[in-house]
Amino acid sequence: MKVTLARHGGQAAAILLRLPPKVLDTDALPKNAAAELAQLVAAAAPAAEKDRPGRARDAMSYTITVEDGGRSTVLAQSDTTMSPAFAALLGWLEKHFAQQ
């Protein structure tokens, strides 16, 4: 599974435009971390489909793209409409990327 995280908007919008999305391939993770990520993705997917990003001045929005087995799923939410499951997935990804 390959997971891509892109950030949009917010007060750092001009800076973020120049940064490429962050990409994580679960083949490079320990098995327990890959399993935890898969569980977080499974929990966030239904919530992300219900709650589309809303508009708020200077709010960040996040797009997490999951590619697995030839399928691509896009999860998108913002700071103002983020579900707890999406927040958990985003937090896990941000923690992982900070450790790289």
Rank of each mutant, 00 (worst) to 15 (best):
T80K: 00
S72L: 15
T63S: 14
R57W: 08
A76G: 03
P20M: 06
E67G: 09
D25H: 09
T4M: 15
D79W: 00
T65L: 13
L17K: 09
K22V: 08
L29G: 07
A87M: 08
K50R: 15
L37A: 13
K2G: 04
R7W: 02
P53I: 00
V74L: 05
K22P: 08
H96T: 12
A42L: 12
M60Y: 06
R7N: 05
V3K: 09
D58E: 13
P21Y: 03
V74I: 07
L17R: 09
L19N: 10
M82D: 01
K95I: 12
S72T: 14
D79R: 00
T65V: 14
K50V: 13
I15Y: 09
R55C: 02
R55M: 03
S61Q: 08
M1N: 10
S61K: 02
D79P: 01
A88S: 11
S83F: 02
A45E: 15
K2A: 09
I15N: 12
T65H: 06
T4R: 11
V3W: 07
D27N: 15
A14L: 13
V41F: 11
D68R: 12
A59M: 03
A6W: 02
T65Q: 09
R71A: 13
F86W: 03
A44P: 11
M82C: 02
A59Y: 00
P30K: 04
L17G: 10
D27H: 13
L75Q: 13
A88M: 03
A56L: 09
